[in-house]
Simulated assay, not measured.
Amino acid sequence: MTTTANTTGTGTAEAKAAHAAHAAHAAGTANGYAPEHTQRMDLAKLAPEVYKAMVRLDAAARQGVDPTVLELVKIRSSQLNHCAFCLDMHTKDALAAGESVERIVQLSAWEESRHFYTPKEIAAIELAEAITVLTDGFVPDEVYARAAEHFEETELAHLIAAITVINGWNRFAVSTRKVPGHYTPGQYKN
């Protein structure tokens, strides 16, 4: 999840068609899908200063980080955190920026699909997993060292911050049960 809300939509035919499809999906009508869950709360409205601070932190964290790497780590962290809202957002943003469906699909099994990614992207994905999961209570030295081989120190600092921020957004979205499926690429901009 990222940046400030623009809830008015784009007004494009594509956005209107998506909205109509999602309205039918929400009702669980003719398409036979289960109905959407209800969002628990709107964090941006109830804690606006927290939300604004996250938006600023997000913008600061991604400075100097390659946009492709950034979307890959956001998607991978969101997969690990089971954040459907952020997966919806970041896969759509990645696709709109020219990322391939194949690389996005293979991201959940990147260790067996290394040939889809550059060594720098692999180092970033591995770092994102280590920061996101923290099962050993720390980021292993070898994971950090591999990332440090591919990123200069300032870029690495921003990458670590960006991974930390997407984990925060994931936790907000999962806790408040943000509903996936309604995001359009570029909807949230700062």
Rank of each mutant, 00 (worst) to 15 (best):
T4R: 09
T7R: 09
G9D: 08
G9L: 05
T10D: 12
T12L: 00
T12R: 05
E14S: 09
A17S: 11
A17N: 11
A18V: 12
A21S: 13
A23M: 15
A24S: 15
H25N: 06
A26K: 02
A26P: 01
A26E: 01
G28H: 08
A30Y: 10
A34C: 13
A34R: 15
H37S: 11
H37R: 10
T38M: 06
T38E: 06
R40Y: 12
M41I: 15
M41W: 13
L43I: 14
K45E: 12
E49A: 00
E49D: 08
Y51R: 00
K52H: 07
M54E: 08
M54L: 13
L57T: 12
A60D: 09
R62D: 00
Q63A: 09
Q63Y: 06
G64R: 04
T68Q: 08
V69W: 02
V69G: 03
V69R: 01
L70K: 03
L70H: 03
L70N: 04
E71V: 13
E71Y: 10
L72H: 02
K74R: 13
I75L: 05
I75C: 03
R76A: 04
R76D: 04
N81G: 09
N81C: 12
H82L: 12
H82Y: 14
C83P: 03
F85C: 04
F85H: 00
M89T: 08
M89I: 10
M89A: 09
M89N: 06
H90W: 00
A94I: 06
E99I: 08
V101G: 07
V105I: 15
Q106P: 02
E111S: 11
S113F: 07
S113T: 05
R114H: 05
R114P: 01
T118V: 07
A124L: 02
I125M: 00
I125L: 02
E126H: 08
E126W: 05
L127A: 06
A128N: 01
A130F: 09
T132W: 03
T132G: 02
T132R: 03
V133D: 07
L134R: 14
F138K: 14
P140Q: 13
D141H: 15
D141C: 12
V143F: 03
E153W: 10
E153A: 15
T154C: 05
E155T: 13
I160N: 11
I163Y: 03
T164E: 05
V165A: 01
V165L: 04
V165Y: 01
N167P: 00
G168W: 03
G168T: 06
W169F: 03
N170L: 08
R171H: 09
F172H: 00
S175C: 04
S175R: 02
T176C: 04
K178A: 10
V179Q: 04
H182W: 14
Y183K: 00
Y183P: 01
T184K: 10
G186S: 07
K189T: 15
K189F: 13
K189I: 13
N190F: 15
